[in-house]
Design a protein around this nucleic acid. Structure first.
Length: 364
RNA sequence: GUGGCUGUAGCUCAGUUGGUUAGAGCGCUUGGUUGUGGCCCAAGAGGCCGCGAGUUCAAAUCUCGUCAGUCACC
């Protein structure tokens, strides 16, 4: 069985479980670091594994534009190409077409757009996207979808959802490898009716897992949680749920309490490169700021990561300030450790049956 | 000692023939960043224009003096 449900929280909707793939097991709830271009920026696969990663993300759109799928096929698939031998999930590219590419024509079969790298015209639809993800040999394939912007009118959201649903039907019909799984993506913007429509239609198609997409795109956090609450009851309990693109540590804790099993977010790695570190219960501090120039303490007193055990804020700030690579590397290590440590704690609390108390304390 | 050059924001420097409230880049502060362009965006703080006289309706700008730095030559 692909997903094994282990423990359920009696007071919230939180669950713990295991995703079983041919590249290894993944305990949930899980945070998946983002390795868009087949690398989690600045860290090696070995470091990533030691930090606690068990599955990573990569991106169809980016890998298609560079280096090109033939290059990765030539290397024997994405795992061999990038040296990460644990599970990989790829985003379908739908989101990137809408967030990055400039010119685009949307049709029934997909999207025609210009590469943001060289302007060349590329066509991507469900067939292309799933075909590519199959060729990459990834463990979890995401259906090809359209992500509506926020805010979005009801009519536009409905139109967008109808296209997405068509694309998702085509996605699941596309043949994939025996050891590959495919997730559908619930859309519908911030409208309850559309979210429910999307969820029930996708569930009837019978995906291996369900993602909630189109959130963390600028809407208020409470609205995001509302959308999860509308959607979650319609999803089969025995299938994993993945909240795409979220979020801040406290948001993850809240979403786990709403029944989410999988997360990905660029924040720990991106904010690290921008000089910000996560500490305590998810607060963030600008290590880059001048006020830390003579602070000889670690980024986080209670953190056991390599960066905090060996280096001061003063030193890391200096590295960031002069543009040394090690600075962003150390903060990336710290922030990833922070996220994996948080997820590990979340799983432990669910397994112990104390998750509800943990949530209350964490959100204080 | 003599002559030249330079003193404007924390730093590097713009500032027209004298003309409103003296600017830029970087840095700093505070926000923002959510299926990744090592960015980017927004707002803000910060000036006896080396110092002192003078000319003028008006001086960062012209004149004199003075101090500091720097270079060249005795």
């Amino acid at each position: 069985m692909f997903f094994e449900l282990k423990n359920k929280c009696s007071e919230t909707k939180a669950r713990s479980g295991i995703l079983r793939t041919s590249h290894g097991d993944v305990e949930t709830p899980v945070f998946m670091p983002v390795g868009t271009r087949a690398t989690v920026k600045t860290v090696t696969p070995l470091e990533l594994e030691e930090l606690g990663a068990r599955i990573m993300l990569a991106n169809t759109y980016h890998l298609l534009t560079r280096p090109g799928i033939d290059v990765i096929k030539n290397a024997g698939g994405l795992h061999k190409f990038c040296g990460w031998h644990k599970p990989i999930l790829t985003d379908s590219g739908g989101f990137q077409v809408f967030s990055l590419a400039k010119i685009r024509k949307i049709g029934k079969d997909g999207v025609e757009f210009s590469s943001h790298i060289d302007g060349s015209r590329i066509f991507l639809g469900p067939g292309e996207s799933i075909g590519i993800q199959k060729e990459l040999g990834v463990d979890i394939i995401m259906a090809f979808d359209e992500c509506a912007p926020y805010p979005c009118s009801y009519d536009d959201a409905l139109k967008s959802l109808n296209i997405t649903t068509e694309w998702e039907k085509a996605s699941i019909d596309f043949p994939i490898g025996d050891d590959q799984k495919i997730f559908g993506i619930v859309q519908g913007s911030t409208f309850r009716e559309l979210r429910e429509k999307s969820a029930s239609e996708l569930v009837s198609l019978g995906f291996d897992g369900y993602a909630i997409g189109g959130l963390s795109v600028g809407e208020p956090e409470e609205l995001m949680l509302e959308c999860i609450r509308w959607t979650e009851p319609l999803l089969p309990e025995i299938k994993p749920r993945y909240l795409m693109g979220s979020g801040m540590p406290k948001q993850i804790v809240k979403a786990v309490a709403e029944g989410i099993d999988m997360f990905d977010c660029v924040l720990p790695t991106r904010l690290a490169r921008h000089g910000t570190a996560f500490i305590n219960n998810g607060e963030d501090i600008p290590v880059k700021a001048a006020r830390y120039s003579k602070d000889t303490g670690p980024v986080d007193e209670n953190c056991q990561c390599y960066a905090c055990k060996n280096f001061s804020k003063s030193y890391i700030r200096h590295l960031l300030n002069v543009g040394e690579i090690l600075g962003i590397r150390l903060l990336t290590i710290h922030n990833l450790h922070f996220y994996f440590n948080l997820m590990s704690e979340i799983r432990r609390q669910i397994q112990k049956g104390t998750f509800a108390n943990f949530v209350a304390a964490y959100l204080l």
